[in-house]
Design a protein around this nucleic acid. Structure first.
Lengths: 218, 218
DNA sequence: GTTTAATTCAAACGTTTGTTTAATTTTGTG
DNA sequence: CACAAAATTAAACAAACGTTTGAATTAAAC
């Protein structure tokens, strides 16, 4: 793949994440990338196909990692959950821009793009499903709602990658922190929270039936 | 407030949620609302101010509810957490369109709009913060990371309101379910999951220090 | 060195965008 | 009814949009 083509993809990723697909013009991309306007049609065919190329080139990576993690027989389900959290927090925080696109471009006009993003998400979900189901089968994890648990992991991370201003304010990270410090502190905080949360949520020893009557009343 | 003005707001809410702010043209809104194109500028001044009006008119409601819940001295912290979950799931699922806008228009060009949406979120966060801090002070809740816990609640709900197709597939709700059934089943599932999750996460009796060494190794 | 293909470019294409205009109709008031 | 204010309209505005064109330039192949 050509250097220039890849460069355009990187610039487009940045701009789409920052201003949205519709909010980014082909002229914006061309100017920011330092290439002629017509080159985008020349390389990708159209603006929409550019986005498809972007999703295709970035989306395949995660599945491979999860698949590898799953196949590693030397790790306990608890280890895998911890590594899963580490991986996803790092992955999303280091690819915040692409993740923002995947997240918000459900509302893209193209059905083809919707289809692809959902397809990628479903494939990845399947891998996480295996990890938790394995822990349940080994009587380490409770019979939790697996897809909902995955939603909690992804949702929590996503929630804190939507707006730097909001995150910095609520997490008291300081207003004018630089991007690297921001990512570092957010990463630490997210990993610790999610690991605690999942331990409490999954641990079979915390199981005391679907309802706890001693919580009712006061 | 005029009927027609309110009608335009409702139509705009629908279209913005469905196709995004940039993806929706003023002509789209005018046609769908059955009003003349110029009426939008006449009533709201501009497309951007229309969005500001929309956020303003919808955003104030939640704070009032949370404030009321907080002031109710007859409820225990556990009761309040349960009611919080019920309220937020219902609120977001019944206003999915507006919520989608609030969620994705962080990337709106206008700084004014960003400022307002973050302001609304911060005000609401403060109320939830009070509920959990109260439970901690009464020695019912562990010393969890409160903003992160709020992020988990909001993030989990948001994760499952981004795409109906994805939700229906992963949650096995059936592909061609109608919107009312979809909302109903998603609501039940989300509430049950979040309540279980928060019980395990918050309950002080599950506390065994920040790390559990017995989970390490295999 | 010549020929062929791939790349780059400025310019222009036809649409669509948000907004404004100025004329017209409707509404409310004395 | 008369008059002023408010509401509504079709038409037009300039600007921005994604895409295409055809000539100019560079690179590759023989």
């Amino acid at each position: 793949m050509s250097d220039k083509r890849e460069h355009i993809l990187n610039v487009a990723e940045e701009l789409f994440a920052e201003k949205g697909f519709d909010g980014t013009s082909v002229r914006d991309i061309a100017q920011q990338a330092g290439v002629n306007l017509a080159m985008i049609s020349y390389y990708f065919g159209s603006k929409e196909k550019l986005l498809e190329s972007l999703i295709e080139s970035r989306g395949g990576y995660v599945y491979g990692i999860l698949d590898e993690l799953n196949k590693d027989m030397s790790l306990s389900p608890w280890d895998k959950v911890d590594r899963l959290v580490d991986f996803y927090v790092d992955r999303i925080l280091n690819n915040m821009k692409f993740h923002t696109i995947m997240w918000q471009e459900n509302s893209a006009r193209s059905e083809e793009i919707k289809r692809r993003t959902i397809g990628i998400k479903l494939r990845n979900l399947e891998q996480i499903n295996k990890i938790i189901a394995d822990g349940q089968q080994k009587k380490l994890f409770r019979q939790v709602d697996i897809p909902m648990t995955v939603g909690t992991i992804m949702g929590t991370i996503s929630y804190y990658t939507q707006s730097k201003v909001y995150s910095c304010t609520t997490l008291a990270l300081g207003e004018d922190i630089n991007d690297e410090q921001y990512r570092q502190r957010l990463s630490t905080r997210l990993k610790a929270h999610l690991k605690h949360l999942l331990r409490a949520h999954l641990d079979i020893r915390n199981d005391s039936g679907p309802m706890r009557d001693d919580h009712k009343g006061h």
